[in-house]
């Protein structure tokens, strides 16, 4: 269900993070994207109040991966009633860390000339997959052996109509790297790695059976 560009990184469609009725007329919809190695919060601010809005600023609560605004929220002109503006806020990953539940939850405070408002949103963990996340094959095999069985989680991905090569190249656009592919009993087994911004490596096996739209992923 991706709306991402075919070879680019996956970015979900914008959703409403802050409804106007909860924020004295300020509506914020947004999404997260990773563009050329930069994590961005992309937002549409809509003024559904009767007076102009100015003096915007944004702050995050500490979060699992230290996401923090890399600079101020750039709203350079007042936002009039019924007006919308688009803002892209670059994020750094060196902010204060606190484990959140769920892990990718982000608590945000936005202020304007009217008040301070709070909302939560969840970012796709793939925002944190760095460009140099392709593990050496030898290291992958050794690491795979070292990981205790209890650390493995398995998921079904339903209704995916790509063959394993197409899936592999699409995933690579989001910095999920295929290190090896083997076919056993008609099943493609893809061994993949990714590295999070905090240096943690994730190893995965993706199983794709020809004609079966359900994949199995083990991480």
């Amino acid at each position: 269900g991706s709306v991402g560009m075919p070879m680019g990184a996956y970015s979900p469609p914008k959703s409403i993070w802050l409804p106007a009725m909860k924020a004295k007329g300020l509506e914020i919809s947004g999404t997260f994207a990773r563009r050329a190695g930069v994590i961005q919060m992309e937002m549409t601010l809509t003024n559904k109040a009767m007076s102009i809005m100015t003096d915007f600023a944004i702050q995050f609560n500490r979060n699992s991966f230290g996401l923090a605004p890399a600079g101020p929220l750039q709203v350079l002109t007042p936002v009039g009633p019924n007006q919308s503006i688009e803002v892209a806020l670059p994020l750094s990953t060196v902010g204060p860390v606190m484990k959140m539940e769920p892990l990718t939850n982000l608590q945000v405070a936005v202020k304007n000339n009217i008040d301070v408002f709070y909302f939560s949103s969840q970012y796709p963990i793939s925002m944190l997959f760095v460009e140099d996340g392709k593990m050496e094959r030898q290291v992958f095999l050794a690491t795979w052996k070292d990981i205790p069985n209890d650390n493995e989680a398995q998921f079904q991905i339903k209704d995916c109509h790509l063959n394993s090569d197409a899936a592999s190249s699409k995933l690579q656009g989001s910095n999920v790297f295929t290190i090896a592919k083997r076919t056993v009993e008609g099943q493609d087994m893809l061994y993949q790695s990714m590295k999070l911004t905090n240096g943690i490596w994730v190893l995965a096996e993706l199983r794709v059976q020809a004609g079966n739209p359900n994949y199995t992923v083990s991480t």
Binding site: L141, W144, M189, Y191, E205
Partner: peptide
């Protein structure tokens, strides 16, 4: 030789995961 060894190791891994 190392590359051959790694190729084989991945084949063994895939095999063992399919038929544990």
């Amino acid at each position: 030789e190392l590359e051959d060894g790694l190729d084989e190791a991945f084949s063994r891994l895939a095999e063992s995961r399919t038929n544990p």
